[in-house]
Write a protein that binds this DNA or RNA. Sequence first.
DNA 1: GATGAATGAGATTTCATTCAT
DNA 2: AATGAATGAAATCTCATTCAT
Lengths: 226, 226, 226, 226
Amino acid sequence: MTRNLPGAPAPVETRTLRRDAAHNRERLLRAAWEVFAELGLEAGVEEIARRAGVGMGTLYRRFPTKEALITALNDEFLDDLLDSTRRLETEQPPGHGLEAGLWHMGASMSAHRGCLSRLWQVVPPTADTRRAELWSMVGSLLEQAREAGTVRADLTLTDVYLCVLSLRGLIEETTGQAPDIWRRFLAVHLAGFRPAGFCSAGDPLPHRPADDSLVVTGIRPRPARG
Amino acid sequence: MTRNLPGAPAPVETRTLRRDAAHNRERLLRAAWEVFAELGLEAGVEEIARRAGVGMGTLYRRFPTKEALITALNDEFLDDLLDSTRRLETEQPPGHGLEAGLWHMGASMSAHRGCLSRLWQVVPPTADTRRAELWSMVGSLLEQAREAGTVRADLTLTDVYLCVLSLRGLIEETTGQAPDIWRRFLAVHLAGFRPAGFCSAGDPLPHRPADDSLVVTGIRPRPARG
Amino acid sequence: MTRNLPGAPAPVETRTLRRDAAHNRERLLRAAWEVFAELGLEAGVEEIARRAGVGMGTLYRRFPTKEALITALNDEFLDDLLDSTRRLETEQPPGHGLEAGLWHMGASMSAHRGCLSRLWQVVPPTADTRRAELWSMVGSLLEQAREAGTVRADLTLTDVYLCVLSLRGLIEETTGQAPDIWRRFLAVHLAGFRPAGFCSAGDPLPHRPADDSLVVTGIRPRPARG
Amino acid sequence: MTRNLPGAPAPVETRTLRRDAAHNRERLLRAAWEVFAELGLEAGVEEIARRAGVGMGTLYRRFPTKEALITALNDEFLDDLLDSTRRLETEQPPGHGLEAGLWHMGASMSAHRGCLSRLWQVVPPTADTRRAELWSMVGSLLEQAREAGTVRADLTLTDVYLCVLSLRGLIEETTGQAPDIWRRFLAVHLAGFRPAGFCSAGDPLPHRPADDSLVVTGIRPRPARG
DNA sequence: GATGAATGAGATTTCATTCAT
DNA sequence: AATGAATGAAATCTCATTCAT
């Protein structure tokens, strides 16, 4: 209906409308991120709409379901992660990309606490594409690491996946109280990845916690609504 | 249920009543374990009462809150764990108690999937005692392991705690689809605990997964209620 | 759980509880009847709960869906109709039961305007039993009438059904403004049922309207909410 | 759609615009007819705009209210009916115009199932003119029939109106499953119109249904959206 | 003490209508 | 004049908790 003839400049109005919609979508996603990080996934969607400064109808025009909103958050996260991991792939010395990638994933997840519960879940085929690409990239990094001898020869992609999965849960639990403690965890786990004779295996683990107070304190539950 | 026939003497069955009460408590806990494992923590309390064969009032007489019920589940779990870990402490060759303890914790948590979300959280003082005792025991095991040289010298109790915490999340996510995959994860992580030259560090990791299908499949969300 | 031994008297408490619940159910049905009659089926269920003096939860405990409530109204209506029609069957002179039954149906429906939209629809098997029984009774009445020669020999049960169906719609439309006009309609239609030579076919039609103002006025729409 | 190039002279296309507008109005009415027939009057207006290929704003520019759209449908229907009935008036042998007119009304309504719920209701004065004219014509036909003795002498215009009104409801209910069953109903009702000794009163009723399955099957509810 | 019906605040979702572009 | 995104009130439905019996 508003199709452009070839060669004609893209219509400004259409883009403007879409820009508005995209703007609202952005605000909704940002608000959702905020709210979920503060109150957990049980937070009401109304609060999200309120903080985004839009009506409920707008929220539900963009995301037909609360689930859809959460999925969109995770999709966005996955998109970003995919982009940054792609860049990372080429920048690392051979054999060190895997570890760099895992540190990067940890940092990314840490910056998005509260929205990650659907992460790594089975999703409709379209989203699976990104997931598959990401893990295919990680697979390459693992292969390179194995060839370079920086990780054990019998380390599998599943091992890396389990590492990320446990990291996700750990971050969701601890970020509120000890935002960087996941680093210590990952350092230990990566040590488990390395072959016996690998030089750095005997190095002191980084990110040593100042004390063991977390063990005593435990993890405080996220505040629930109402 | 314990209605008296008219004219019968007043029941002298305080002990019996208490036994009944304890019985109901047991049934409620068992039902809660079942329901949470099947439907997740969002399951309605009515379903639990139904499966326990008691009314809602009884449930709320025993547990003033849904939270209290969940806490009771975790307390019970903690009690069991404390008992079994105490026994374990004395049965292991010196320096190997820590790993044995972690394998044991993993198995215990795996057997209680669905109820563990409040585990290791800050709880009222009474429960804290057990928690403190447990981690004090684990602290001893860690000390022994350090002394025996079976773990790195710079390994802290926090590291062990993080290991257990991540294990808990991993088990909650994966037990439905891959009930034993946590073992592989723990094997890797324990490798990270060991010092560089420790004999078994170069051994092949146990619990190798048959393939990497989990990476592709991902974790399916727990089914929600109707 | 409160099962009685055979021969034991029925427990009073259970009945009392049930009486309460039944009481509320009654009030809900009465309120629903009122509200639907006043505002139409689009009325909100909250108003029904309010008028019944119960909370929303109670309404939804009794009727899991608004649809279920409407169905219950129609079921109740059908039950009553079945009972009264059964009585009627034996009280009429042979050959006149069909007409009496139709006048009775008209009056019943007229007394329940606003709730009848699901009437005569396909419903779950349990309710179908009543429906089937009713129409089987009507079938007998039709047969008797045919035998007595009070209706045309080629009149089918479908014809009677269509009469009732159209009557339902007519009543829903007109009861508000002209509560008895359906009688005139039915008188005409029953004249159409009769054989050519039947004595009363030439009698003047009863229920003659005073004027034709309804044709000019038309049917006013039922007031909508909000 | 009709955007002007910058600098181009102001468009001299008032007629064109009006033609466009009329075109859109047509498409909206056609789409509304379709959608209401499929989904009932509760269908969302968005679906109508979508099928008409126009935006919501256009729909609301043409019809300030959903009600107005429905009224427009009924007006259009009334216009058509008025035209065709005018033609019919002159073509029938004297005394038979009334029945012919009713058959024609039935067929017209049957062809417009889904849009007829506001039909014959009180409407703004403009439409009332048509309504009044139509019923005045029907009044003449009734008068002629009475004079010709093809209907009872005591038959009123209200009787005809009730016939049409009940026919409307019947058609709305049954057209989906038994598109022509209304004919049987009308045949019976017209028999009720006729005087006792009128020749055709003893003829077998036409449109006899093959069986009484509709009584057992009942009327299935129209599928709801979403 | 046990029961399970009642509660009602709050969650998600829909949709006729408005309005910025 | 056309578009379709935004609106927000209101609808249906849920569920942890209370309370009459």
